[in-house]
C-alpha cells in the first residue's frame, strides 16, 4: 500500500495501510504518544483502499478492509478516513482476536480493580468511561475490554476514545485541546471527535486489573435508578456483548462464568453525566471493594 503506519493498542499490534496519505497522517497524530516497537510483527492488518481505481481521486471514498472484511460495508468519504481506520481496527479485533474473551465494553481502573461498563451504542458507556478517566480513574478501554481466560483479569485496550455528538462538547470543556482529534461532522454515527487518553493510561496499557464491578449503564430516563443484576442475566447480556464468546468454546464459557460469579453487576439508568458519575462512585464505595 502507498502509505502505512503501525500502532500498538494493549496486546494488539496493528499494521494499517492506505491508498491516501491523509488517514495515515491523522492516525499518526492521534497515536503519536503510544509506545512503538518497529521490529514487532503485526497481529492484525487494516487496509483502507479505493473500491474502484478512480475513487482514489474522484469523490474519493475509503473502503475498509484487511485480514477480515464485512462483505457489504459501504465506503466512507475520505474526510472520514480516521473513522474508517478506527472501524477497520475494531473489525480486526472483533473478528480475529482469540487470546482473550472480548467484551464490547468500556472499563476504568482504580487500585488495580476494574469497573466494566457494558451497553449498546448510545448507552453512554464511552462517555462515562472518558469522564471517569479524567477524574481519578485510569481509562482502560472505551470499546473493547479483554478478559484473560487463565487469570480472569481485565486487560486494557485504550485506543483513542471515540466521542460522539453531545459528548464532544462535554469533554472538550474539560481537557487540553491538544488531546482532541479533528471533528468528523455528519458521519453515519453522527459527529465524532477522538480523545487521546491521558499519558498515564497509555503508559499503563499492559497492566491488568481485577474486575470489581460490572455495570450496564443506560443514558436517559427522568431519574437515576440502580438495579442489582443476577449472574444469569449478566451472563446472557455479556455473551451478547462478546464478539468471540462462541469461537472460544469452553474457555470462553469458563471465563465468563467466573466473571459473573465473582463480580457484582448492576443495571443503572441516569439522566445526565453528573448523576452517572455519582452513581458509579456510590456503587464503587458500596460494592466495588
Amino acid at each position: 500500500m502507498r502509505h502505512d503506519t503501525r500502532i500498538a493498542v494493549g496486546p494488539v499490534q496493528f499494521r494499517i495501510g492506505s491508498d491516501w496519505a491523509r488517514p495515515i497522517a491523522a492516525l499518526n497524530r492521534l497515536y503519536a504518544s503510544y509506545p512503538q516497537d518497529p521490529e514487532r510483527p503485526a497481529d492484525a492488518t487494516v487496509r483502507l483502499f479505493a473500491a474502484r481505481p478512480w475513487r482514489r481521486w474522484l469523490r474519493p471514498s475509503v473502503q475498509i478492509g484487511g485480514d477480515f472484511t464485512v462483505p457489504d460495508a459501504l465506503p466512507l468519504p475520505l474526510a472520514m478516513g480516521l473513522l474508517a481506520a478506527e472501524m477497520g481496527m475494531n473489525l480486526q479485533v472483533a473478528l480475529g482476536w482469540r487470546r482473550h474473551l472480548l467484551l464490547h465494553a468500556s472499563a476504568v481502573e482504580k487500585d488495580g480493580r476494574a469497573v466494566i461498563l457494558s451497553g449498546v451504542s448510545g448507552s453512554g458507556k464511552s462517555t462515562l468511561a472518558a469522564l471517569l478517566g479524567e477524574t481519578g480513574w485510569r481509562l482502560m478501554s472505551d470499546e473493547f475490554t479483554l478478559i484473560a481466560p487463565d487469570s480472569g483479569d481485565a486487560l486494557a485496550f485504550p485506543r483513542a476514545v471515540s466521542l460522539k455528538n453531545e459528548a464532544i462538547a462535554e469533554m472538550a470543556a474539560r481537557v487540553d485541546p491538544a488531546r482532541l482529534g479533528p471533528l468528523l461532522a455528519g458521519t453515519p454515527k453522527g459527529d465524532i471527535r477522538h480523545l487521546i487518553p491521558r499519558p498515564d493510561a497509555i503508559a499503563a496499557m499492559h497492566d491488568p486489573a481485577r474486575p470489581a464491578l460490572i455495570l450496564f449503564p443506560r443514558f436517559g430516563g427522568a431519574a437515576a435508578a440502580v438495579e442489582p443484576m443476577g449472574e444469569g442475566e449478566a451472563f446472557v447480556r455479556l455473551t451478547e456483548a462478546s464478539t468471540n464468546y462462541t469461537a472460544l468454546g469452553e474457555a470462553g464459557f469458563a471465563a465468563l462464568t467466573r466473571l459473573v460469579r465473582e463480580t457484582p453487576a448492576f443495571a443503572l439508568s441516569y439522566p445526565d453525566s453528573a448523576t452517572g458519575l455519582a452513581l458509579v462512585d456510590r456503587l464503587w464505595a458500596e460494592a466495588g471493594r
Binding site: 514487532r40 510483527p41 485480514d67
Partner: peptide, 12 residues
C-alpha cells in the same frame, strides 16, 4: 521480523 506481517495477512 517484519516479513511476518505479510505472511500472516496472506495466510489469513
Amino acid at each position: 521480523p517484519r516479513e511476518w506481517d505479510g505472511v500472516i495477512s496472506v495466510a489469513r
